[in-house]
Amino acid sequence: MSTIKQFQVTFDSAEPERVARFWCEVLGYVMPPPPAGFATWEEYNGSLPPADQGAWAACLDPSGVGPRLFFQRVPEGKVVKNRVHLDVRVGTGLVGEERLATLEAECARLVALGAVRERLLPADDENESCIVMRDVEDNEFCLD
């Protein structure tokens, strides 16, 4: 049996670079360097046919631990709830008021970046609190 060493998470998107930059800010990721032979991404995109310019973007965990996020332009918009979503784990190990304060602080930071707060899912007998949010293209994610 083979072992998976790496994976990336791919998002369909209307504006790949905009969404990639948002997630770089959320996760502390970085944009990869432009392809060999190009000083900037703008220069690379300018070398492509107009229909292919800005067709994709990616962001990377600078530590190399987290998965690569890839954003590809698609013609159709988002219609229904995501089947897969990211949980941004900012409250790991925290409970009660300390957890809520941490989640709320991160929520405020992300709203300033363009995210939308949907709702708080309060703690119950099985789960700690989390906040359901949407990114700059309406993709659901959770602050956990």
Rank of each mutant, 00 (worst) to 15 (best):
M1G: 15
S2N: 11
S2V: 14
S2E: 13
Q6S: 11
Q6F: 10
V9G: 04
T10L: 08
T10S: 09
F11S: 03
S13V: 02
A14Y: 00
P16Q: 03
E17Q: 12
C24G: 07
E25D: 13
E25G: 14
E25N: 12
E25R: 13
V26C: 14
V26P: 15
G28N: 10
G28M: 06
Y29D: 08
V30S: 11
M31V: 09
M31D: 01
P32M: 01
P33L: 08
P33C: 10
P33S: 12
P34G: 15
P35H: 06
F38P: 10
F38M: 06
A39M: 06
T40V: 02
T40M: 02
W41H: 14
W41G: 09
W41P: 01
E42L: 01
E42T: 10
Y44L: 10
N45D: 15
N45H: 09
L48I: 07
P49K: 05
P50C: 03
P50N: 10
A51C: 13
A51P: 08
G54Q: 01
G54H: 02
G54D: 00
W56P: 10
W56I: 11
W56E: 15
W56M: 15
W56S: 15
A58H: 00
C59M: 01
L60Y: 04
D61G: 09
P62M: 09
P62A: 14
S63D: 12
G64T: 02
G64E: 04
V65I: 09
F71T: 02
Q72R: 11
R73A: 15
V74G: 04
K78G: 14
V80I: 10
V80A: 15
K81M: 14
K81T: 13
V84G: 06
V84E: 03
H85S: 02
L86D: 03
L86V: 08
D87T: 05
D87M: 10
V88H: 01
R89Y: 02
R89C: 06
R89W: 04
V90F: 11
G91I: 01
T92A: 12
G93A: 03
V95Q: 13
V95E: 14
G96K: 12
G96H: 08
G96T: 08
R99V: 05
R99I: 05
L100A: 07
L100Y: 09
A101H: 03
A101L: 02
A101R: 06
T102L: 14
L103E: 12
L103F: 06
A105E: 13
E106F: 09
E106Q: 08
E106Y: 06
C107Y: 03
L110N: 00
A112L: 05
A112P: 00
A115R: 03
A115E: 07
V116P: 07
V116C: 12
V116M: 08
E118K: 14
R119A: 13
L120M: 12
L120R: 07
L121P: 08
L121C: 15
P122E: 13
P122L: 07
P122M: 10
P122C: 06
D124Y: 05
D124I: 08
D124H: 06
D125Y: 08
E126T: 08
E128D: 13
S129M: 04
S129L: 03
S129C: 09
I131P: 00
I131R: 01
I131F: 00
V132D: 07
D135S: 06
D135M: 08
V136L: 07
E137H: 05
E137K: 04
E137S: 06
D138W: 02
D138V: 00
N139G: 05
N139P: 03
E140N: 02
E140I: 06
F141W: 02
D144M: 12
D144V: 14
